[in-house]
């Protein structure tokens, strides 16, 4: 799970999709999700997959990378697909396609939306505490993942990692995670002090709501998906 990589692509990218606002992209995702809910034959996925792949091209995300990420939902949907395969092959495949296309739509969104915009958007739907909690999760994730990487490197350098030794690895990993926990709780205490000193009473950000040309394109794409699925 490469949150760090996704974050980098979202922030450094400069495609049409990167330029469109979080709102229009979110609308696109909702459209795709509605399309997925409505879709119930393999044919329905033609416009869905098509438009998502075109989206990848527009967003300059390599299809290979997208497929790599789409493997998770494909794997997890297998269990459900097994049950549906008993009905028919296509019914099983539909389940897998639903999981994969939904994940692709969200990935497309997340790959092209820098997190300040993302959180500003979420702020409209969810309570402040939750959004602030998510934001702190995000910041702390990056601080801790850097530390975890160093810890794991030093475990490896000291000969604590064997590709085949599951139990051996787990024992050493537990040590590293333990250290991480202790540091993480110290970090939370430090941030508590910082918030007190800086007078925290809820994070505020500004969400850009003006729509541009790229936004209309994104919204149009979303509507097209629904129409195509319904027609087919």
């Amino acid at each position: 799970m490469d949150l760090a990589l996704i974050d980098l692509m979202a922030n450094k990218g400069d495609s049409v999709l990167h330029q469109s606002s979080a709102i229009s992209k979110f609308f696109f995702v909702i459209c795709v999700l509605i399309g997925i809910i409505l879709a119930d034959s393999l044919l329905d996925f033609l416009p869905l997959v098509g438009i998502l792949l075109v989206g990848c091209l527009f967003a300059q995300i390599s299809i290979q990378k997208m497929i790599h990420y789409a493997l998770y939902p494909a794997f997890f949907s297998l269990l459900f697909a097994f049950i549906r395969f008993s009905v028919s092959l296509s019914a099983g495949l539909v389940v897998i396609f639903k999981a994969v296309t939904a994940a692709m739509a969200l990935l497309l969104f997340i790959f092209t939306t820098p997190y300040p915009e993302l959180f500003a958007l979420i702020n409209r739907f969810l309570p402040q505490i939750l959004v602030d909690g998510m934001f702190f999760t995000y910041r702390i994730f990056f601080i801790l993942i850097a530390e975890m990487r160093n810890l794991l490197t030093s475990v490896r350098l000291k000969g604590g990692y064997r590709p085949l030794g599951l139990l051996f690895n787990i024992k050493n990993l537990a040590g590293a995670i333990g250290v991480l926990f202790i540091h993480a709780f110290d970090l939370s205490e430090k941030m508590h002090q910082v918030l007190t000193i800086r007078g925290y009473n809820g994070l505020k950000t500004d969400l850009q709501t003006k729509l541009g040309n790229s936004d209309y394109l994104t919204i149009l794409a979303g509507l097209t998906v629904i129409i195509l699925v319904v027609i087919i």
């Binding site: 300040p116 430090k190 910082v194 950000t205």
Partner: peptide, 8 residues
């Protein structure tokens, strides 16, 4: 790192 809080 412990004190930079804002998203940007």
């Amino acid at each position: 790192d412990e004190q930079i809080i804002g998203p940007t």
